[in-house]
């Protein structure tokens, strides 16, 4: 089963308050409209990610395709801010907040029978509201969306291995119940 990481969200802190006005003047591609959103939005073209910088010094990185990429992007941007003349921490603590991954079972799923046989505690299937079946894995605390086409979106994980464990558990459970 091939698992593809689609998005990694990480948070970090520069350690000092940031003067967003000043940063938005120097950095190109920076978007800062305090009336609309209190943070500064900085979109990088390469690698294609977006960062949110807040005046408290906290920052959020979204759109990275891997954990390493998220780490690198945060470091690159902090270096750029340092160039402007703001004395940020050299070694920020970067924390992964969310990982989104997809996979394909290459097999059509009958969501109706899955919903019925897996009991309604961990499974939620409301075709009127959303075409996918929501599967909440207790441990690791991860949510998977199962679609009729056999594709699965897995979200809420903090570590890559959590996704592996959760998806394996789902696949086991489905094959135990003879659904795939």
């Amino acid at each position: 089963m091939e698992i593809k990481v689609e998005n990694v969200v990480a948070s970090a802190s520069a350690g000092v308050p940031l003067d967003l006005q000043k940063i938005s003047m120097t950095l190109e591609d920076a978007e800062y409209v305090p009336e609309k959103f209190p943070g500064l939005i900085y979109r990088l073209k390469e690698p294609k990610t977006a960062l949110l910088l807040f005046s408290s010094g906290k920052l959020v990185c979204t759109g990275a395709k891997s954990v390493e990429m998220a780490h690198n992007v945060v470091k690159i941007v902090l270096a750029k801010i340092k160039d402007i003349g703001i004395n940020v921490m050299d070694d920020p603590e970067i924390k992964i907040q969310n990982i989104v991954a997809t996979t394909d079972l290459k097999k059509e799923l009958n969501l109706n029978s899955i919903a019925i046989s897996l009991g309604l505690e961990k499974v939620e299937y409301e075709p009127e509201q959303f075409p996918g079946l929501v599967y909440r894995v207790e441990y690791p605390r991860v949510v998977a969306l199962l679609f009729g086409s056999g594709k699965i979106v897995c979200t809420g994980a903090r570590e890559i291995k959590d996704i592996d464990i959760a998806l394996q558990e789902i696949v086991n459970e489905l094959s135990d119940a003879d659904l795939i």
Binding site: L111, N112, P127, E128, P131, G132, L133, G148, S149
Partner: peptide, 10 residues
């Protein structure tokens, strides 16, 4: 035929 899966009932 299991073609109702993931389709809105209405």
């Amino acid at each position: 035929l299991e073609i109702t899966s993931g389709r809105g009932p209405t």
